[in-house]
Nucleic acid binder design. Structure first.
Lengths: 214, 214
DNA sequence: TAAAATTAAACAAACGTTTGATTAATTTTT
DNA sequence: AAAAATTAATCAAACGTTTGTTTAATTTTA
């Protein structure tokens, strides 16, 4: 029984979108419902009217985003035309793209993870991470059975390196630009740049960690 | 002209310590000055009296912590008895220890980095990161000159992997325990466990990335 | 006794939410 | 088809709390 995606009206989408933007920029507690209403161009009351509360609005943001957020691993696992390392590489690119494209939402997610709370949102994050980890575990184990990958691999640690490296680079944009003298890059230019860098860096890390090749 | 550390009274230290704890647990905006005062066992007015404002209290937390936070790299660079890779390994352990020991403060730092603001606190973080990166750059370059390290190394990316992996593991404690069936570990036991895991994992990553050895 | 520390009380401002009224569109009844 | 009833959307205003900060009085310290 799949949970069906709720169809929102234009105004509801405007509210969700504005909330995502402002939660990302100033945090949940740092953003007032009046800020959100103004950004979305609606009356304050509409937030309670449509979503019930500020907390429920946050949940709505998560419900909508997490459904788009799942890695495209299920189909990938069935493909027999490519090696397991190539599958890993595709996953890396997929993850980097998702994080860079949806970085506003990912910043919200990161902050929520740091707060160790038992909110519905925290449960959603945990569920998403579990699902992704299980799929990747399967992929790695297949690679091990075929002899393509090493035997002893700590998948949790490798995932932490993947997720951690990407988030670190994305949230350190200012620092990264200043240190590498990239000051004049526009946002899309910077995104293109780090996407490439991150992809190559992580593929290399995974290759030398997973495989027996030099 | 070194900025001298301010000597705080017992009550002032209690306030700073409580603020650090609560900011870490519920965020800056999610923590009220009354919460802090109660946790510290002082009157609300004492916060304004001693620190001027809630923002200034946050700065005081940072001022105090960031001075303890610098990597012990300066002395390390002068040591000629050990290889450059051994120096890198010491740095990794130092960083892992600092992050795990001071994880409350590190969580505050992470959240502040995600908010892209131009606060005094953001400036302090940037300064700290710059200083650490410069020292590590020096260490890597020395290793390259001696032929111990490869020629083309993206130090920013490697640092992002170090910082990112550690933070990811620390903030994902619940997820990590559940996935690895470590539910019954006490906090110190868990810390000991991930400290060891992280250290070995990162040393391995750095070795195969930096050196020409297999 | 002068200075510093501490307190309860008060402050305006901002917070999330609710209210009652109004509009416009839709449905039901005549 | 006209009239009446119902519904959903929208709004300004107000609600009761909580926010960070200040005041003025009191106690403690030196």
């Amino acid at each position: 029984m799949e949970k069906q995606t709720i169809a929102y009206s234009e105004k509801q989408n405007a509210i969700i979108h504005s909330a995502e933007k402002l939660f990302s920029q100033t945090g949940f507690d740092g953003t007032s419902v009046r800020d959100i209403a103004q950004e979305a161009g609606v009356n304050v009351a509409m937030i309670s009217y449509y979503f019930g509360s500020k907390d429920k609005l946050m949940e709505a943001v998560f419900e909508q985003k997490t459904t788009q957020m799942r890695l495209k691993i299920e189909n990938l696992l069935l493909n027999n035309q490519i090696t397991h390392l190539e599958k890993v590489n595709i996953l890396i690119d997929d993850y980097v793209d998702k994080f860079v494209d949806q970085q506003e939402f990912h910043k919200i997610m990161m902050r929520e993870q740091i707060l160790e709370q038992n909110t519905p949102v925290a449960a959603l994050i945990l569920e998403l991470k579990k699902r992704n980890l299980q799929s990747i575990k399967k992929l790695i184990q297949d690679g091990q059975k075929s002899g393509e990958f090493k035997k002893h691999i700590d998948i949790m640690l490798m995932m932490s390196t993947l997720v951690g490296t990407v988030s670190q680079v994305v949230i350190s944009k200012r620092f990264y630009c200043e240190m590498n003298h990239l000051g004049d890059l526009t946002e899309p230019e910077y995104q293109k740049y780090i996407r490439k860098k991150l992809s190559a860096h992580l593929k290399n890390l995974f290759k030398i960690t997973l495989t027996n090749d030099i």
